[in-house]
Simulated assay, not measured.
Amino acid sequence: MSNVTPDKPSHNEDDYFAREEIEAKRKLALEQSKEMAAQQRESLKQLHYMKCPKCGMDLQTLKQGNVELDSCFNCHGVWLDAGELDEVIKQHGHEGSGKVMGAILNLFKRTPPTP
């Protein structure tokens, strides 16, 4: 006769299932954390998207050739996305930064109202 009872799992088997349960819970917590971080990023994007980083007012998109400049009419800030400054310089040739800045600043010149 054997001393092994078929109804009682071995100690190693208990450890295995305990580790499996812990790993499953760890993976679930990690997924929840990633989902929460993604939701927080989306929430922040909705809160700050197209807002001036300087004064918080809405940014307006203005076309300058092939480039869309994000512009604030409250504080007169101009914001460029990655690569847009290079594109503006290409459009105006290698005439120097003064001409490029002049072209950008011309967007904000006030024209007197027509009578």
Score class of each variant (00 low, 15 high):
residue 54 K to A: 04
residue 96 G to F: 07
residue 22 I to C: 01
residue 22 I to T: 03
residue 31 E to P: 06
residue 49 Y to M: 07
residue 27 K to F: 04
residue 29 A to D: 05
residue 110 R to A: 10
residue 37 A to Q: 08
residue 100 V to N: 02
residue 28 L to H: 04
residue 9 P to C: 08
residue 76 H to I: 09
residue 55 C to S: 06
residue 88 V to R: 06
residue 95 E to H: 12
residue 78 V to G: 02
residue 31 E to S: 05
residue 19 R to F: 04
residue 38 A to C: 04
residue 1 M to I: 02
residue 37 A to M: 06
residue 38 A to P: 01
residue 21 E to Q: 13
residue 20 E to M: 12
residue 99 K to L: 09
residue 54 K to H: 06
residue 105 L to A: 07
residue 87 E to Y: 14
residue 94 H to V: 15
residue 72 C to W: 00
residue 25 K to Q: 14
residue 40 Q to K: 09
residue 4 V to R: 04
residue 13 E to K: 13
residue 16 Y to M: 02
residue 66 N to K: 13
residue 50 M to Q: 06
residue 93 G to I: 07
residue 11 H to D: 03
residue 46 Q to T: 12
residue 114 T to I: 06
residue 28 L to M: 13
residue 66 N to W: 13
residue 113 P to N: 12
residue 50 M to H: 04
residue 108 F to L: 01
residue 83 G to I: 01
residue 111 T to K: 11
residue 93 G to F: 01
residue 15 D to E: 09
residue 111 T to H: 14
residue 61 T to Q: 06
residue 115 P to C: 11
residue 85 L to T: 07
residue 20 E to P: 00
residue 6 P to W: 15
residue 87 E to C: 14
residue 99 K to N: 10
residue 76 H to E: 09
residue 95 E to N: 12
residue 9 P to T: 01
residue 24 A to E: 00
residue 13 E to N: 07
residue 19 R to G: 01
residue 21 E to T: 08
residue 42 E to Q: 03
residue 69 L to Q: 08
residue 48 H to W: 15
residue 16 Y to G: 00
residue 67 V to W: 03
residue 29 A to I: 08
residue 36 M to A: 10
residue 112 P to V: 15
residue 28 L to W: 09
residue 19 R to W: 07
residue 17 F to S: 07
residue 31 E to C: 11
residue 100 V to T: 02
residue 59 L to V: 02
residue 83 G to Q: 00
residue 74 N to L: 14
residue 77 G to Y: 12
residue 62 L to E: 02
residue 89 I to C: 10
residue 39 Q to E: 02
residue 71 S to G: 08
residue 60 Q to H: 13
residue 34 K to E: 08
residue 50 M to D: 05
residue 69 L to K: 02
residue 66 N to S: 15
residue 3 N to I: 06
residue 45 K to M: 05
residue 29 A to C: 03
residue 49 Y to C: 09
residue 13 E to G: 03
residue 43 S to R: 10
residue 62 L to V: 10
residue 94 H to N: 10
residue 78 V to Q: 12
residue 11 H to Q: 07
residue 22 I to V: 04
residue 94 H to T: 06
residue 97 S to T: 14
residue 23 E to F: 06
residue 85 L to E: 11
residue 52 C to P: 00
residue 82 A to L: 13
residue 8 K to I: 12
residue 21 E to A: 13
residue 76 H to P: 07
residue 37 A to V: 03
residue 70 D to W: 13
residue 105 L to C: 14
residue 18 A to V: 09
residue 21 E to H: 09
residue 82 A to M: 04
residue 96 G to R: 02
residue 36 M to K: 11
residue 66 N to A: 14
residue 24 A to S: 00
residue 68 E to N: 11
residue 11 H to T: 07
residue 69 L to N: 04
residue 23 E to I: 05
residue 42 E to M: 05
residue 91 Q to V: 01
residue 79 W to F: 05
residue 87 E to K: 10
residue 63 K to A: 10
residue 8 K to L: 05
residue 44 L to M: 09
residue 54 K to I: 08
